[in-house]
């Protein structure tokens, strides 16, 4: 199915149809999520009002992991199947994932200070998420580091795939090692450990973030496809100029 959308024009037509829905869902779900998160949900028996930070911290963390998985999948597709749009999808995803990771770290820190008593600890969960942030930055840096864009794509794709081992480490860090960060509350054996009145804003914000991701991803894909076309046009111009000067050189050579 993905090969059907190897054609950029066909992909852009689909993107044009989807984008308004993604935008609408982001606003509606985000608005509803914020209403429940800030107004229509109770304080926690243990953490009081700071539990409201969970409604933006957890969705950010979920998106950080989701985006990296998408990035790794796109890079694998580019390396193995040489799908023409896969590299562009990877480039478009990376900055979004980096932003969500930064938000997970920042909101987590603001939540940790009042609850744990510290802004930061080097436990397995926090350290591995910081590493994830560096992986995103590394991918973006490596991607643009080469004159030849294809070499940049390949090098950064390998980094992204190698770094994927970090994703299960992040997820299971709170189970494998003693950490300050608490274990999972939603996706765990025995069902969620969150009261429904709090699960509602959490899930609304999670889906709002997902819709936002699709919205921004489609925008960035359009930009990446344009950039690809611009490179192609410029390359043709350079070749045309070289051909003309070669002809001119040959003509001059004969005249001499």
């Amino acid at each position: 199915m993905i090969h059907r959308f190897a054609n950029p024009t066909r992909f852009l037509r689909l993107a044009d149809r989807i984008q308004p829905w993604a935008a609408g869902l982001t606003v509606v779900l985000g608005g509803a999520g914020l209403y429940f998160a800030l107004f229509s949900s109770p304080a926690d028996y243990q953490q009081g009002e700071t539990v409201r930070i969970m409604y933006i911290h957890v969705p950010s963390a979920w998106m950080a992991l989701f985006c990296y998985t998408a990035l790794a999948a796109a890079c694998a597709t580019a390396l193995i199947w040489k799908h023409p749009l896969a590299d562009l999808a990877a480039r478009a995803t990376a900055p979004i994932g980096a932003c969500f990771t930064l938000l997970a770290l920042a909101t987590g820190s603001l939540w940790g200070k009042p609850m744990w008593g510290t802004w930061w600890v080097w436990d397995a969960r926090l350290t591995s998420v910081l590493i994830l942030f560096f992986l995103y930055l590394g991918y973006m840096a490596l991607n643009g580091a080469f004159d030849d864009p294809e070499r940049g794509q390949k090098a950064s794709a390998i980094l992204a795939l190698v770094g994927f081992i970090n994703v299960p480490i992040i997820k299971f860090s709170v189970d494998w090692w003693n950490t300050l960060h608490q274990p999972a509350s939603v996706i765990k054996m025995g069902g969620p450990a969150i009261h429904p009145s709090m699960l509602t804003p959490l899930l609304l914000m999670a889906f709002a973030f997902k819709a936002y991701f699709v919205w921004v991803l489609l925008m960035r894909m359009r930009g990446e496809i344009n950039a690809m076309k611009i490179r192609a046009v410029r390359l043709r111009q350079v070749h045309a100029a070289e051909a003309t000067s070669a002809d001119a050189g040959a003509a001059t050579g004969e005249a001499r």
Binding site: Y45, W116, T118, Q182
Partner: peptide, 18 residues
């Protein structure tokens, strides 16, 4: 030298806890 609080993964309103 330092004491940090570690909370569990349960979230619920105070009435439910009571």
């Amino acid at each position: 030298d330092e004491v940090l609080a570690k909370h569990d993964e349960n979230y619920m309103p105070p009435e439910v806890a009571e």
